[in-house]
Amino acid sequence: MQTTPIPSPRADALVSVRDVSMIYRTRDPSGAALQTVALKDANLEIKAGEFISLIGPSGCGKTTLLRLLADLIQPSSGTLSIGGKTAQAAREARAYGYVFQAPALFEWRTVQQNVMLPLEIMGFSKPEREARAAQMLKLVGLEKFARNYPWQLSGGMQQRASIARALAFDPQLIFMDEPFGALDEITRENLNLELLRLWRETGKTIIFVTHSIPEAVFLSTRIVVMTPRPGKIEKIIDVDLPQPRDFETRESARFFEIATEVRESLKHGHGYEVTE
């Protein structure tokens, strides 16, 4: 069995994952105990300012890893730290913004009110809330739709609103769980470009879950390849494509080389069930 090389812990790591495993204990219909290993012995160090993609097929533990970092679930073993804090302390300090698979906008709030939601919860003053919402909506190009309700927006616009909401309280770290998975290819490529621009302009650290190889290669500074049964980190690949990236980046020879490397790693881990 192949062992994943454990990166040596770095002092400058913003996010650090050490020997983290997640085991779900359930029962099968006959009542016998079942163990599902969602994530096994994961190790990962992420520096501030990186754009990390977690890629792999369903069941490889990529969403599990993100939810563990966000303290939405707790690991069976191992330690997670964000900015020197435990995952729970980081969540309580509102250290990260989370963008979900679905926009999860509140339908009774206008787009602007949705972006202001975290600011209300966190006790920002009204002028501050309005100023930040306006700034964020401009950043994602939705300033003309501030007073619209979510159902009046297309799927891509709704997801942009949810990104503005995640950025509103200015967390250094952004978690994104297949945010463009439900969108068509054309909208997705446009949003990928916009996301890269946002990342460059804001200097955020982004951890991005995807099952699309081109998306991962295009966006990331590093790609974490994950494979299922049990979910584990197969390989971490550096993406040395120059910044800023644009549509031409996708046609460069280096782009295809890296995409092939990702594909080979997925195959090697028997995780080749990835969409193109």
Binding site: A70, L72, R91, E92, A93, R94, Y96, G97, Y98, F100, Q101, A102, A104, F106, L117, P118, I121, M122
Partner: peptide
């Protein structure tokens, strides 16, 4: 939606 509840949790 469970995601909306998760969202509130991320805001602590």
């Amino acid at each position: 939606d469970p995601l909306q509840l998760d969202l509130m949790r991320t805001y602590n």
